[in-house]
């Protein structure tokens, strides 16, 4: 029961924060002038009527020499219209200034760009977690021996290597010099065919190398602390072999801390790494986000900002909540 109350409280707080961020974004965007770009041969009235239909402006009138004038709807009413459409119809608007997708439904464009981002993230987790944990465990078990030293150097190098540099280095070596992979990811929807999968590998490597170092460092620190615990000595005196003691007692205890961080990282990189998406020209959400900023497509920007804010909040809350589920000793909210 305590647990339930705690989770509810955290979720409520998260929702509250999210609404504040979302509203703030909306208001700040609506304070800007509305970008209206009329294509040659297009009737400007249609664009203004569309804007009116979406509830942003009202009272359109054509002045002399073809200048259009309009009144803006009060922001709170615009916000009401906006939320109503989202909640009732799931309608986030249509693309207005982002040339490539002009006139498309924003939500559809967004979901069609999810797969590459999510797939690359999943692959990277699948590769990164076992290797990272393995290296961390090895380093902790062989603490201060040469294996540990080597892994430590590897970790500090990878952690210090900025992801821009790491991605560029990978692109230069394995894609350009050795020619094993294409320079950028292929623009194709057939994600599970070999050529596309192959072109996804360099960004996957770039993404997972950083997280491998992170997991390894974290696991090493946690496990070596657990290993010095007195219950480990007790387990050995009870007659467990070293292997049994480590796998049944030390590992489980260190996982209490490691697992939530894996979960949270998995969620937070769902939004993708903007740098890696740009470097390898991945046609994912990150690219949409960058382009929506550059094209000033405000409705699109609202959706993506909401998405990023939500992901960030969820990643934070997952850590706190999963502690309680994984470790029975932690009873959150209990007095």
């Amino acid at each position: 029961m305590y647990m339930f109350k705690y989770v509810m409280k955290r979720l409520g707080l998260m929702l509250f924060t999210f609404i504040i961020i979302f509203t703030m974004c909306f208001v700040l965007i609506k304070l800007l002038p509305i970008p209206v770009n009329v294509l040659p041969g297009q009737d400007p009235e249609i664009i203004y009527k569309t804007l009116e239909g979406r509830g942003w402006i009202t009272n359109i009138r054509e002045g002399a020499n073809g200048v259009w004038d309009y009144d803006r709807v009060p922001i709170l009413i615009q916000y009401g219209n906006y939320l109503k459409r989202i909640i009732l119809h799931g309608d986030f608007g249509i693309v207005t200034t982002y040339t490539e997708y002009r006139g498309h439904n924003i939500w559809e464009v967004f979901t069609s760009h999810m797969p590459p981002t999510v797939l690359i993230n999943i692959y990277s987790t699948l590769i990164g977690v076992p290797i990272g944990l393995g290296l961390g465990i090895l380093a902790a078990l062989k603490k201060n021996k040469w294996q540990d030293q080597v892994i430590n150097v590897f970790i500090i190098l990878l952690i210090s290597l900025p992801s821009v540099v790491l991605a560029l280095l990978l692109q230069y070596t394995i894609c350009f010099k050795l020619g094993w992979f294409p320079l950028t990811m292929l623009k194709s929807n057939a994600y599970f065919t070999w050529p596309v999968f192959k072109s996804m590998l360099p960004p996957v490597f770039a993404l997972c190398l950083g997280s491998i170092a992170g997991y390894a460092r974290y696991t090493r620190a946690e496990l070596s602390e657990v290993l010095t615990g007195e219950f480990m000595l007790l387990a050995r005196t009870k007659g467990l072999t070293k292997r049994q003691a480590i796998s049944r007692h030390a590992m489980r205890n260190s996982m209490v801390v490691i697992f939530p961080s894996i979960l949270s990282e998995f969620i937070s990189v769902l939004s993708g790494s903007l740098i890696i998406e740009k470097m390898f020209a991945i046609n994912g959400v990150g690219r949409l986000y960058l382009d929506s900023i550059n094209f000033q497509d405000y409705d699109f920007f609202m959706l993506l900002s909401g998405f990023y804010a939500l992901i960030g909040l969820a990643a934070g809350i997952v850590i706190d909540i999963s502690y309680g589920f994984i470790d029975p000793r932690i009873r959150m909210g209990a007095k």
Partner: peptide, 19 residues
Amino acid sequence: TEILGAVPSMIIISLLKYH
């Protein structure tokens, strides 16, 4: 600070850039 810290910095930057 909790609410302020939850705003992704990318959003702050792009909004400020617009303005």
